[in-house]
Design a protein around this nucleic acid. Sequence first.
DNA 1: ACTTGCATTATGTCTAGACATATTAGCCAA
DNA 2: TTGGCTAATATGTCTAGACATAATGCAAGT
Lengths: 227, 227
Amino acid sequence: MQGWEAVRAEVLRRIRARDWAPGALIPGEEALAVEFGVARATVNRALTALAEAGVIQRKKRAGTRVAELPVRRARLEIPVIRLDVLGRGLPYDFKLLADRLALAPVPVAARLGLPEGQPLHYLETLHLAGGRPFVLETRWLNPAVLPSPPPDFAAISVNEWLVTHVSLVSGDIAFLAEPASAREAEVMGVAPGTALLVAERTTHGTAGSVTLVRLAHAPGHRVMMTF
Amino acid sequence: MQGWEAVRAEVLRRIRARDWAPGALIPGEEALAVEFGVARATVNRALTALAEAGVIQRKKRAGTRVAELPVRRARLEIPVIRLDVLGRGLPYDFKLLADRLALAPVPVAARLGLPEGQPLHYLETLHLAGGRPFVLETRWLNPAVLPSPPPDFAAISVNEWLVTHVSLVSGDIAFLAEPASAREAEVMGVAPGTALLVAERTTHGTAGSVTLVRLAHAPGHRVMMTF
DNA sequence: ACTTGCATTATGTCTAGACATATTAGCCAA
DNA sequence: TTGGCTAATATGTCTAGACATAATGCAAGT
């Protein structure tokens, strides 16, 4: 290995070996460039990568110091459900259970940052893997920010239409565990109260809040991430 | 805005506006550099950032193309539990419930990639937020890869000692929902069968597998991520 | 003692040019 | 037709030098 990756590796080694302790200031880019016999830009590339990884913290004028508690970051690749199912080697299908305009309940409107009493598009989709319930998706869509003619959601899943036709800018996702409600139990064919992994997602586009989704996963479902 | 961030923004805008459709080849760095009136290195910086974000895919000789299904990535910052609790404005404490050597059960050994019948360090810690159970941590540690004298885990939490004293290289984390076992119910003061959010984490260091942790969170706990 | 302003300095970014490397298309030979 | 070589090409990286920007700490003035 050579080049900026070599610099990154060596700096990382010294931090792990505690040559440079947590919280300590490390030599400046210029000094490291001289020591390693490379240009400053190369050192900069290496340190920028380490800073993105959370290993060091950099501030102009103040210099670079080793992070006190190295924050570990894991990346979640949010899959399109269809591909998630196919990736497990199972045939995919879905059923549209509800598709109507409805007034948003207060907590929904609040989460989307919309005024109360606004009519939203409500969709309920049951995703199937190998014919068995996989995920129950309940979704509120803000029609105001969508391209005018919504397609037939019985033909293409909402999710896939959204990611390819709407500019999604930012959002957040939360995982929690909840007992299956009566409706969930019925639709998914499990006992009421069964522990379900639930993902709640809000998504914002350039024109405002787009959608609030709740995904209730079948028992035993695992969401995996690596770091 | 100007510089490489301006280039990134403009390229992103064109992709979102479908000037450049998913799967399509976009102009080369040289061409973009001329168009934007910047050096090729600046375009490279912008495109590298977009590639890291998953918006485009780059290959030498083959060029740069817009990702087919824009994979949405969310980042999870795995907190040290103490800081997580303090960040919620609650006092933190923990109790060490178990600290012994024990033979690893087969599934544990398998997940760590170790031979069966190996003695591992078993630790059980109850993390408290404001005096109430927050997380029950059950952990298997591989003593073979640790710095020789392990500290007194009743004084410093295992997690914090690990992140500051062991080179953690890679790992994975899975979230799932499970009903509380009898022991979990007793220790955490909830009814057996309550839906709990469980995180299972394996971590590997340079010298091999380090640890397997199971974190059972108190009811209502949410793991939040943004993208 | 307190505030304001300025010089200092480390990181952040840019440029122009160069070489490295991976990958592909096309060609040629078996 | 198939397999392997080759040349072309787009991205990847490096260099040396320059200017930009943000913090910091000191100095000066109130």
